[in-house]
Amino acid sequence: MLNYSYVKCKDLTQAYDLLEKEEQVYPLAGGTDLIVGMRGGKFAAKIIVDIKDLPELKILEENDQGIVIGAAVTLNEIATFKPIIDHALVLAEGAHTVGSYPIRNRATLAGNICNASPAADTAAPLMVLNAQVKITGSHGKRTVSINEFFVGPGQNVLKKGELVESVLIPRPYPNGTGVYLKASRTGSVDLATVGVAVQSWDNKVQVAVGAVAATPVRAISVEKAVNENGEKDLARAASLARDDISPITDLRGSREYRYHMAEVLIRRGIEKVMEV
């Protein structure tokens, strides 16, 4: 049993007011990371603000800006939302590899990125889609590129009193295909040892990698080689990812294996989206 107060928020203002004024306040959307973290001592929550049923956070729609994914939208909803499958398949694939089916019925995209695990399976897909994170708080709203959202392991750019309201997959959508490739120990429900998202735009690619640095990162060197320098040897291009990443050794894999797998999955991903 855990010690905290529970507040079921009536509106967003109530949520960010509590986040602003009180200490050790945690928003609850899916709760799948929060409850595990509280039990394991990672989060010492005094107040939990339940935002999951706020209608403005349940929005999952396509508008003239793009695809809007509210903070309380679950990963299963994302993985089966037709506009996402049609225009942002890489995100559907990433979302689909998070946890198990029951987990994905609770877990949210916003939670996945706010938890800011370097291995978050939706992070790399969002990066290659140029997603924008809509942040709201007592001091107003702001938008941050997903590429700037992560600060370090478990850390993001949210300030006290702020929370993620939604994530936007902006138009224009990529006109090419995308793929999320994940290496894990068992190939089943597991955290990524390395996760690679590749998206083609016209004849260019965008590549992002998870679980290989303090945050999910773009493989800028690879993108440059392929997109600007016209590198046709994709293995050679993929090997440049070594300049973009700095993996560690942990229970899921060694630094050495992660370097290798990032290369392999990047090459395979590019081959796939370019139909090599």
Binding site: R185, T186, G187, S188, V189, D190, L191, L251
Partner: peptide
């Protein structure tokens, strides 16, 4: 013991 839960200690699942 480093891997002392099911997140870190993996066993067979139906899909593998």
């Amino acid at each position: 013991m480093l891997n002392r839960n099911f997140t870190d200690y993996k066993i067979s699942t139906i899909d593998n």
